[in-house]
Amino acid sequence: MTAYALRRLLALVPTWLGISLFAFALSTLSPGDPAELILGRQLDDPPTPQQIEAFREEVGLDDPFIVQYGRFVAGAARGDLGTSFRSGEPVFAELASRFPATLAIAVPAFVVAFALALLVGVISAVRRNSLIDHASRIAALLGDSVPSFVLAYMLIIVFAVNLGMLPVAGRGGPEHFVLPVLTLALATTATLMRLTRSSLLEVLGEDYVRTARAMGLKERTVVLRFALKNALVAVVTVAGLLFAGFVTGTVIVETVFAWPGIGRFVVDSIFDRDYAVIRGFVVFTGTVFVLVNLAVDLLYVRLDPRVRLMSERSTGGR
């Protein structure tokens, strides 16, 4: 298992390198001289050419691209994402300090999205072409088509402005969590809902399900005990895909609801032309992305004995 985990991790390294290369190459395209930008914020007077020259020398801005990228990757691998132009603090610390706020809405939203997807997905598979099935199909279409910021504002208009039940934005008591979590969950659940439905339908056509039914087991037992368990393997794997929806969702939701997480921080940094933070954010998200994928891979191995046996065989069985 450990050997398998290591192998999966190694397989994800090229992706991580690709993301970090993208982030680094992009930052070299930023308009203006970074030395001037950074010094301009650190010093009270405009920097002199000598100061700029000395700074370029010190930070290594005149080194060839590949050398600078190598230095950046070596640093990033150790958790050093450079220094924020704006605050002078390490970018990693800035992001890490805001990450809990992001998780505070992302984790409950994930739970809600997953529960909703299972519930509606199972019902619409078992009761095909029922009202719920049709409703979930419409919900999936809307989930793919309505931008999450539009969804967020619609929820605000209904629940905060018209009904006055919930706060419009900001962070505070539990009532502040409702709309951001709901937006994020609704925006991501649709795909998972349809996937649960289709993989359950597939499993329901299998021989062992027919056998279970032929043995006279209750339909409820057949669906929940036999079919769902197997259908879930596919669903859990794709939960990794939800990651993209969540990153996108948190950036938008945090902007709409003025939520102090990393998504809003990076949007603020864009307007501050804090390129170090933009670059750091891409690498940070890339790292989380790689870890989530690794976790999903390993979960998959645990859930599906066929994959488990295969991975043990190929790593020597130990």
Partner: peptide, 15 residues
């Protein structure tokens, strides 16, 4: 593989 909005933000945010 990567969430495209992050890449969009990074590109337009930088340029």
């Amino acid at each position: 593989a990567f969430p495209s909005l992050v890449l969009y933000l990074a590109i337009v945010g930088t340029l």
